[in-house]
């Protein structure tokens, strides 16, 4: 015999007026409470021998994902890198290559 489906507890209380509007952002900066999504397909990898520590890659990253580490070299925070490849394209010395993450 099939189980009886229990009546929803909120029935009668929850109306369409309580339903949240989808796809509308009413305030700015609302992406902050969420976790960063999946890792990008291709991530930038630095070749420290070719890098001259100029900082161009850092300046051109639209997501502010590239941080300067203490030794002066640059590194991407993979949580926020979207894998766009601008840093790879803009490095004068070809120090960045886009690779699949191991």
């Amino acid at each position: 015999m099939a189980k009886k489906i229990p009546a929803a507890k909120t029935r009668g209380k929850h109306t369409w007026k309580d339903t949240k509007v989808g796809c509308v952002l009413l305030e700015e900066g609302k992406a902050k409470p969420f976790e960063p999504g999946e890792k990008p397909l291709l991530v930038p990898l630095w070749d420290k021998e070719m890098c001259v520590r100029c900082g161009l890659c850092y300046l051109f990253c639209p997501d502010a994902a590239i941080k300067r580490s203490d030794d002066g070299y640059y590194e991407a925070t993979l949580d926020y890198c979207k894998g766009c490849g601008i840093c790879h394209q803009e490095c004068w010395f070809g120090a960045i290559s886009m690779m699949e993450e191991a």
Binding site: G29, A31, K32, P36, P40, V52, C54, G55, L56, Y58, L59, F60, C61, P62, D63, A64, A65, R68, T77, Y80, K82, G83, C84, G85, I86, W92
Partner: peptide
């Protein structure tokens, strides 16, 4: 070439607070 280092390193534009597509010119 090294001029980027003269800019302030502090970010006001935080990566976790925006939903721009990858490679967005506006975000940049």
């Amino acid at each position: 070439l090294y001029v980027p280092q003269l800019l302030p390193f502090k970010e006001h534009f935080l990566p976790e607070a925006h939903r721009a597509c990858m490679g967005c010119g506006i975000a940049l």
